[in-house]
């Protein structure tokens, strides 16, 4: 069988995830784990730092969703619920350079829930050894309620992480589609990317700038709340 010339010239793998998105993803994984471990073991300073970093990263990701590369943009992977359902039923377009509609929904829910977690954490207190940077801005009762909510949302996060891992595992083991490697290398096999797609990549300097702004915002919030 003569090899197809065109397939020859086409690269075997195509860059779909830009570096900032990938870095964001894996930092998030690490920070969620650190946050859990530090809270569990009572290292509240570590917890505070990881929580604030998480918040800054989430803010960055929100901005990156508007100004980032094609696959990082909300416009690329956010779809109306009917379309998501249609995808889950196995209909509609099968190949996606970035997130598929179900994955996109997952991303959005995760970001929203993590954001809620980070924000409630700002107001949380255990009335003993830890007071969130904004806890003193609200009544003690409100702070305690938000602390309880912080605990509840964590359970939700556990559930979502479970769902996320199970779904990725499903793609890997059942559908034979490895989603993990592209999130590391940034490249997807060409066969998994729709043809004729033009991906635009935002310059990493923009990412650095956006991240700097996010960190500055969170830092300002911290000092505003604590002084």
């Amino acid at each position: 069988m003569a090899p197809d010339r065109e397939a020859d010239t086409k690269p075997a793998a195509i860059l779909v995830w830009d570096a900032p998105t990938r870095l964001f993803h894996w930092s998030l994984v690490a920070l969620v784990f650190v946050s859990w471990l530090s809270a569990d073991q009572g290292y509240m300073t570590v917890h505070l730092l990881s929580g604030l970093t998480l918040l800054a990263l989430l803010l960055f990701r929100l901005a990156w969703g508007f100004f980032g590369s094609t696959t990082a943009r909300f416009g690329d992977f956010l779809h109306a619920p009917p379309r998501v359902l249609r995808y889950l039923r196995g209909r509609g377009q099968r190949l996606h350079a970035g997130h598929n509609p179900a994955g996109g929904a997952m991303v959005m829910v995760l970001i929203a829930v993590l954001l809620a977690q980070a924000v409630t954490g700002l107001f949380a207190t255990d009335s003993l050894h830890f007071t969130g940077p904004l806890a003193l801005l609200v009544s003690e009762d409100a702070s305690l309620r938000l602390t309880t909510l912080h605990g509840t949302i964590f359970n939700l996060i556990l559930l979502l992480v479970w769902l996320h891992v199970v779904a990725v595992g499903f793609y890997l083991l059942v559908k034979g589609d490895n989603l993990i490697r592209p999130m590391v290398t940034g490249r997807k096999p060409a066969s998994h990317v729709p043809d004729g797609l033009r991906l635009v990549f935002t310059h990493p300097v923009i990412a650095v700038l956006l991240l700097a702004v996010s960190i500055a915002l969170v830092t300002a919030l911290f000092f505003w709340g604590t002084t």
Binding site: W162, V166, G169, F170, L173, V174, G176
Partner: peptide
């Protein structure tokens, strides 16, 4: 695309691991 397992097997595996 080798090493694929059936959806049922996967579900069972997930149940087991989660349990």
């Amino acid at each position: 695309m080798t090493g694929r397992i059936s959806a049922w097997a996967y579900a069972a595996g997930v149940l087991l691991v989660t349990g």
